[in-house]
Structures are given as C-alpha cells and as structure tokens.
Design a binder for these strands. Sequence first.
RNA 1: GGCGGCAUAGCCAAGUGGUAAGGCAGAGCUCUGCAAAAGCUCCAUUCCCCGGUUCGAAUCUGGGUGCCGCCUCCA
Length: 471
Amino acid sequence: MTKIQVYNTMTQRKEEFVPREPGKMSVYVCGVTPYSDTHLGHARPSVIWDVIKRFFRMMGYETYHVQNFTDVDDKIIQRSFDEDVPALEISKRYIAEYLASMDALGVERADLYPKVSEHMDEIIGLVEKLVETDHAYSANGDVFFSVASFPEYGKLSKQKLEELRQGTRFEVDPAKRDAVDFALWKSAKPGEPAWESPWGEGRPGWHIECSAMSLKYLGEAFDFHGGGNDLIFPHHENEIAQSEAATGCALARYWVHNGMLNLKDAKMSKSIGNVISVKELTRRYPKELLRFYLLSTHYRSALEFYDGKLEEVSKGWTRLNDAYRALQDDLKHAVTGDSSLDRETLEVLERLEADLVSALADDFNTAMAFGVLFELVREINGYKHRQGRSEDVLKKASDILQRFAGGVFGVLQETQVQDDSLAESLLDLLLGLRQELRKQKNFALSDQIRDQLADLGVTIEDTPQGPRWKV
RNA sequence: GGCGGCAUAGCCAAGUGGUAAGGCAGAGCUCUGCAAAAGCUCCAUUCCCCGGUUCGAAUCUGGGUGCCGCCUCCA
C-alpha cells in the first residue's frame, strides 16, 4: 500500500501516516463560528480536507469527518444584541449559509457537525473532571484551566510559558491564579444565553467545546486534527492541555494546519474587514475553477487573492477541461489499436498516474499533482496530434482525468446543456448548415454564424474531425 | 520582544544533497479559407544576500535582510 507522508505541526516534520485503526481515517476539523457570511478563507480548509478525504478513500480508507460549529460565542451574542434576534437564531442562519456555500463549492459534507449548544452536558462533565483533578479551579462562577498543572503546555506552538506570561498584552483577569490560565467556563452576564452548571449560570469558554466534542465522537488519539494555522495558538494548544490533562492520552495523532488566504499581503479576516464572500464568488465563477485556484498552491503555503487572479488561473484550468472534453468526443471515433505509439503512450500514462498518487501521498501536494495533470494533457494532445486514436489509450487518459481531476480534486466542469437535448440538436443542425456553407466557400456567412454564436457564449472550433462547440 | 513559517524566471508555482516540474504571459514554426484549439522549439549557467560543511547545495549549517502568521476573536 502506498505510504502517505503527512507534515505534523507537533513534530515539525513529515511523518509516515499510520492510522489509529487500519483502513480507517478519522479527522476533526475546527469549524466556523457562524455569525457572518462564509468567506474564501473558510473555503480553503474545507476544500483541502474535501480533497484529502477523497484521496484517502481512493487509497482504500474509510473516512470519518467531524467538524464543529461554535454556535455559542461572544460575537454571536453581540450580533444578537445588535439585531435583537436570539443568539441561536443568528447561528442557525449562518450555519445554513455556511453549508450552502460549501455545497456551492462541491465540498462533500462532513459526517457530523456537532454544535456547542447541544453539548453542554459533555462540556460541563469535562470541566468537572478537570476541576476534580486539580487541572482547573473555579472563581466567582468562572472556571479556569491551570496551565501550570500541565507541564507540556506549549508543545504544539513551541511557546515557553515564561515568554507567554511576559507577552500578555491585555490586562489579566484578577480571578486568574496565573496570567496564562484560560477560561473553561464563563459566568453569565445579564441578557446573555446561559446554561445551568455546578458553578452557576454560564457558558463554555472558547476551547473546551472542541475537546468535549472530539472526545465524544472520535475518542482518544484520533488521526487528524485540522484547521488554519492561526488556530495553533492559543486554540489548539489549549485544546491539547484540556484534553490530555483529562484523558492522559494524546488528543490527536497528526496536527495538520493550512496556510492563510491573503488579500493584498494581509490575512483575509472578518475583523480586518477584507473579506470575499464565497456566496458572491460562486455566483460569478464555476465552482471547479474556484477549487482549481484553491488547490493550485500547497495547502501549507499562504495563498494570495486579488482582483483578476481567477481570470489568470482560468486559462490553465480551461486547458485542462478542454482536453478532457475533447477526449470525450475523440472516444466516439476511437479504434482498436496496438501500435508502438499506442503502447508507448499507454506506458507514459501509467507512469503519470503513479506520479499523481505519489504527489498526493507526499503531504497532499496538490500543486505538484496539477503539474502532472498538465503533463498528461500535453501527452495525450500530442498523441492525438500524431494521429493516435486507440480506444485503450484515449480511455486511459480520460479515466485518469476523471478520477483525479474530477473525482479527487473536483476541478472538471461537467458539460453544460447536457440535459437540454433540444438546444443540442438545434446547435448540431446549425453547425451542419454552416459546414455546408464552408464547403461552398461561403466564408462570409459561416463566419457570421460563428461570430453570432460567440456573442451568445458558444465557441466554435473547426477541427479535422468536424466542428466542435462549447459553452 | 518571543514563537512559527516563507523568500525559486515578467507573474503564479513544484522541487529539500546529485546538477531547476508545471501553468500563465512572451518569441518563432506547423496545422488552418480565416479564426480558435492543438503540437513543436525557445524562454532561470541559476534559486534574497554573505560565510561554512561536502566531490557536489535552491536543498544541510551559521549570520544577515525582507515579508507573512500567531502571541487578542479568527479557517
């Protein structure tokens, strides 16, 4: 079986992936706080994990993906005050918006989307356990995690406790015993959503929900914990402290963090206000192009977005799609053959297929895989240029594109008009007439037809095998 | 200030010890009624700078410089 290498933030190097259970892959991805529209930055980890999951399945694994919604949060509460709408209404609205955006990007749904508001018992239970074992203490209705009680604190983000204490920028809550301690439970202020607890009415702190829900649904030491690299500290560091202090077991086996999506060299973030909404983008561009763009850079690198970027990217993406589309046409005229050209091409295709698997098995290197995809495009186009028409060869190329570009990356655009047979018939009729005109050398009229179809968005290409059109 | 990361052609982007993938743009050619598409050829003696290790470094190492992220909510 192909060995899969994964970069683990914890060890800061690539490691061979060894699943907790043979043949199974489990992942917890930190999801969004639903209080405003989903932006492109959120789409990046979603699309990346979508591809990683599809790849694992291609490699014969069963995948199980849990992704939370942090639907109890300061900003949701703020928004609820602003709009005078219950907090859970706000989160419900934006959860639906998030899921709709992901659907529009062709992102497969997670197996489970647990919400904080529905897991208070688990959260309270975990906090109680931490209090009982002296990893946490309560003070005036708040409960804090005692960082000093967890000697490994800082192991993920490589922070030293002393530096963190000195680096505290904001004034420290006097109820804390140590400036670096963080809240597990916050007492309710008037008007805020609150739940009953042994420490009075309140709500969970930011990090505890992921510890409680990942433990409930994935258990101890599940395979992957994912999220943006902006979550490494404090979010994931604190999750580790809470979970591992409570269970004595590793939280996750591999920590996988994606790079940020930048806009004009600055991180796209709601607080800066430089956001590009997914809803808007999916209205203007095909989802396959958006995915192609998001996957064109390795997931750990920063990715730039700017005006015109998608137009630049679309040229290469179109080339890939055109090659696939042409292949479908050529397959209709394919012949059985076994010439030396056929055999050589088949061999190259097999090598390229293996290269695709290697690229993905090497820390999910989608950028490298795209390079291989384009080599394949050049190979098969060259083959056709040299009059190659073997069904075996064309089928093989089409099959690879379909399984990788289509199945794993989701960047192959499905042919439009497919379901509109009348339009298709009319178009064929028109093109047949135009061929007749061309035969009679009536180029003025045939060019006029081509131009006018172009105005309607239909591109005509005259090939030796006859005219080809695309929308 | 601390921690993590990045710096490869006009642009985007792989490559992490053996002599620079791929895409876009650009130049020339082939095919074509023209166009489009496609194919072929060319396009980084060099990988931010300065030292070191090595037979050999974009790749390892030390030191600079610049940029990004985190240290406060954040995918």
